[in-house]
Lab assay of single mutants.
Amino acid sequence: KKYKIKVYVKDKKTKKWKKIKEIEVDTKEEALEAIKKLPPNYEVKIVP
């Protein structure tokens, strides 16, 4: 079972969220580790 991490950042001009990358991992633990490495201003969604 794979997890997709969708990473969004808020556009300063439009104030809208835009997706900047998608990370695919195998476990939820890996997903949480990957999220920890991202800057705090990123919004993250984990999709099972």
Rank of each mutant, 00 (worst) to 15 (best):
T14D: 05
E30V: 03
W17Q: 02
T27P: 01
Y3V: 05
K18D: 03
K37Y: 07
K18G: 03
K15E: 05
K12Y: 09
K37F: 05
K37W: 05
I46R: 02
L32H: 08
K12G: 10
I23R: 02
K10R: 14
K12A: 13
T27A: 03
K4F: 08
P39N: 11
P39C: 06
I20S: 01
E33T: 09
A31Y: 08
E29L: 11
Y3W: 15
L32A: 08
K12E: 14
P39D: 10
V25P: 00
K10Y: 15
E22D: 06
V47Y: 12
Y8K: 00
E43W: 15
K6M: 14
I20R: 03
K1C: 12
W17D: 00
K4E: 02
K1N: 08
K36L: 09
E29D: 09
I35F: 03
I23M: 11
Y42C: 07
I46K: 01
V25C: 10
E22Q: 05
Y8A: 00
V25R: 02
K1V: 14
K36M: 09
L38Y: 12
T27Q: 02
T14H: 05
K13R: 12
P40N: 12
I35V: 10
E43A: 15
K36S: 13
K1H: 14
Y8V: 00
P40I: 08
K19M: 13
E24K: 05
T14K: 09
E33W: 02
D11I: 06
Y8N: 00
K2V: 07
L38K: 02
P40H: 12
A31H: 01
K4G: 02
W17K: 04
E33F: 02
A34I: 15
K4V: 15
K18E: 06
V7T: 01
L38F: 13
P39I: 10
K13P: 02
K12L: 13
W17E: 00
D26K: 09
T14S: 09
E30W: 01
D26A: 10
P40M: 09
V9I: 12
V7Y: 05
K6A: 11
K12M: 10
K12F: 10
K16Y: 04
I35H: 02
K45Q: 13
L38T: 02
K1E: 10
V7G: 00
V7H: 00
E43G: 15
K2R: 13
V9Y: 11
K6H: 14
K16G: 04
Y3H: 04
V9D: 04
K15A: 08
K16P: 00
K28F: 15
I46F: 07
K45I: 15
K36Q: 10
E24N: 09
A31F: 08
K28C: 15
P40R: 10
P39G: 11
K37N: 11
K6V: 15
I23A: 02
I23N: 01
A34R: 10
P48K: 14
V7C: 09
N41T: 10
V44Y: 13
K2D: 03
K12N: 11
Y8I: 01
I46N: 01
Y8H: 01
I20E: 02
A34F: 15
K36C: 09
P48A: 13
E24W: 14
K10L: 10
K19G: 02
E43R: 15
K13V: 13
K15V: 01
T14W: 04
K16N: 05
I20D: 01
T27N: 10
P48Q: 13
Y3M: 06
